[in-house]
């Protein structure tokens, strides 16, 4: 099967800034693919390269096996849901959604029918005659989605589409987006800086840092088996143990990751000093220092919270200590 999107050594340099640097990606057809990374890590530039808003300064991009070199955005079977939604303020919702069909020269009746269907798909039936300015953030997001889907793209690009929504709406939209992707079977490429979002929605996640992909894999792999300290820290908020500490614990000299929820305060174990505690609802976050290494432990509700400055013993299951031998 040909890949939906394939990057071969793709770079996008802006002067001396290497926004995207020698990136290889292989996105399968029908996949929900997330690009995760902090801001400025190159994930959005990669998305813009697929859309055609940016041209690579090196390497090649293939969309369904065809090189995208020199193909302008308006000739690509790729549509985008923009971070700011980019709804046209002078058109009503129906004309926004039907814009792609209007450009394609479809007759009015067909356009209106298709727009209404698309609005039903995103649970906004009957909103066609409203102006974008009359909608809430979540509704605009759905309109942007309907507009991007109306041309029946082969690949749908989503640039932090849920970033502007409040938590509750975001969680609801995550489920809806995932269900929609399953239903339509379109390849989704989703850019986000929210690890929870990437892990909960995507089939595979690519983690970006400083213009490069540092790890690609299934969410469980990214979360439980980070290959590099950056992924352990950014994706799992894991405690990253430096090689010296790992050597003392296991005899192997490499970085190791230890999940906060895997840490327990117990009778015996490794000595650590409590620096601070903060209540975060479902648990209490305890910051500690062990062997000069800052650590974070999540203590579930109901357990005793140590006082700040106290000496405690930390323990964990051996299998929770994940060694990052491969690339450190």
């Amino acid at each position: 099967m040909t890949s939906a999107v394939q990057f071969t050594g793709v770079s996008r340099h802006f002067g001396s800034v290497r926004a995207v640097d020698a990136v290889d990606i292989d996105i399968a057809e029908g996949e929900f693919f997330a690009m995760l990374g902090p801001s400025g890590s190159g994930k959005t530039t990669c998305l813009r390269l697929i859309a055609g808003f940016e041209q690579p300064t090196g390497g090649d991009i293939a969309i369904f096996g065809q090189s995208a070199k020199g193909v302008p955005p308006y000739k690509r079977h790729v549509n985008t849901v923009f971070q700011d939604y980019a709804l046209f303020p002078h058109l009503n919702v129906r004309d926004n959604v039907a814009y792609g069909l209007m450009i394609a020269g479809r007759p009015k009746a067909e356009r209106h029918r298709a727009a209404e269907e698309a609005l039903e798909l995103v649970a906004l039936p009957g909103y066609g005659t409203r102006k974008p300015s009359e909608l809430s953030g979540g509704q605009r997001q759905r309109v942007a989605l309907a507009r991007a889907l109306i041309n029946q793209p082969k690949v749908l690009l989503l640039d932090e589409p849920l970033g502007a929504l409040d938590l509750k709406l975001r969680e609801q939209m995550q489920e809806e987006l995932k269900a929609l992707q399953r239903k339509l079977g379109i390849t989704f490429v989703f850019v986000t800086h929210d690890q929870g979002e990437a892990l909960s929605m995507a089939d595979r996640v690519a983690v970006f840092n400083e213009g490069k992909i540092v790890q690609v894999g299934r969410p469980e792999d990214i979360y439980y088996r980070p290959e590099v300290p950056f992924v352990a820290d950014f994706v799992g908020s894991s405690n990253v143990l430096p090689p010296e500490v790992t050597e003392k614990l296991t005899g192997k000299r490499c970085h190791a990751a230890l999940r906060p929820e895997a840490l327990r305060i117990s009778e015996s174990g490794h000595v650590a000093t409590v620096r601070a505690t903060s209540f975060i609802g479902t648990a209490t976050r305890v910051s500690l220092v062990m062997d000069d290494t800052p650590m974070v432990a999540l203590i579930p509700k109901g357990q005793e919270i140590p006082a700040v400055g106290a000496q405690v013993n930390l323990s964990w299951q051996d299998e929770d200590l994940h060694l990052m031998e491969a690339r450190s």
Binding site: F53, P73, Y74, F82, A86, Y99, I103, A104, R147
Partner: peptide
């Protein structure tokens, strides 16, 4: 916003159409 013109191009409008249907009205 630049994204307005990008959205138009993304939906299949060539630069002339983007001018006529998005840039000029705005």
């Amino acid at each position: 916003p630049t994204s307005m013109l990008e959205a138009s191009g993304d939906l299949g409008a060539n630069p002339g159409q983007s001018f006529r249907y998005v840039l000029l009205p705005l």
